[in-house]
Design a protein around this nucleic acid. Sequence first.
DNA 1: TCCATTGTAACTACTTCAGTTATATTGAAA
DNA 2: TTTCAATATAACTGAAGTAGTTACAATGGA
Lengths: 145, 145
Amino acid sequence: MAVVSRYTIALHILTWLAYWVEKDEFFPSDRIAKSVGTSPVFLRRILGQLAKAGLVLVQHGGTGAGWRLARSPEKISLLDVYEAVVQTPLFELHHSQPNPGCVIGHGIQPALQRVYGDSEETLKRRLAQESIADLVASSLEHGKR
Amino acid sequence: MAVVSRYTIALHILTWLAYWVEKDEFFPSDRIAKSVGTSPVFLRRILGQLAKAGLVLVQHGGTGAGWRLARSPEKISLLDVYEAVVQTPLFELHHSQPNPGCVIGHGIQPALQRVYGDSEETLKRRLAQESIADLVASSLEHGKR
DNA sequence: TCCATTGTAACTACTTCAGTTATATTGAAA
DNA sequence: TTTCAATATAACTGAAGTAGTTACAATGGA
């Protein structure tokens, strides 16, 4: 299966906020929703996770309420976003327990956990190399055509 | 989210077959199911994918019917298994289309596709480094205790 | 011909995800 | 103090995917 589209949405949100970062404003969720093409409630659920991870700031009430980046786009890596939004491990183990009476059934899970852990680490190191600022640049590059 | 547990099941099957590879026999799916702890039908669905990918051989009728490895465990990488069993890309894009009138909405998908593609490649290169033979060794190591 | 086994379809139960609706809460500005 | 634009959150829906079960047709060696 796949890393949920929630991750894509989170990256879209942050890239959008980064694009407007010069404005130095808080932007409401339904304004962001216009670009993402999804519901403001869904976005706020994700924005809440990003806020908890310290990636965005929220202004609750009043006329200027909304969201903005908590730090500069260069300092937000795709790994930061991944860890803010994705809580489950990349690989699933068995749903029902393997037979502990069988040598393989007994030893396979720790064996897999090692490989799975290493592989997830490898993926995360790759994500750490890219920032939201890179995504803005790359989006503009493609958006131009 | 996660790579489906089907991948874990496929690795369990192949590791089990590799453990018994000296026997030079075809093993029925319900024998394998005893070790994995799941239903033979589910296993046969996965075994079918593995056969299509050329990783196992199947013997249909008769008393000696069942499954065996198509080649030696050292020559089956975890990437081979991944590609046999997982068909969807690792990262999902938007479910509903982003706004093409917005600069970011227009450019974000190709930008993400590049990063997502690179990241998936990185993961696959890691999986290519490990073989079913390694999993057998590692399982026995843990199974011993 | 026998029969252990695979191949496959149909169905169920469960979970997750995205989206919607509705309501309470916040807090700057008038 | 009131107003009101916005967030916070719960409850619900529909859709999709996963794993598991049952049932039955097809295979092919003995």
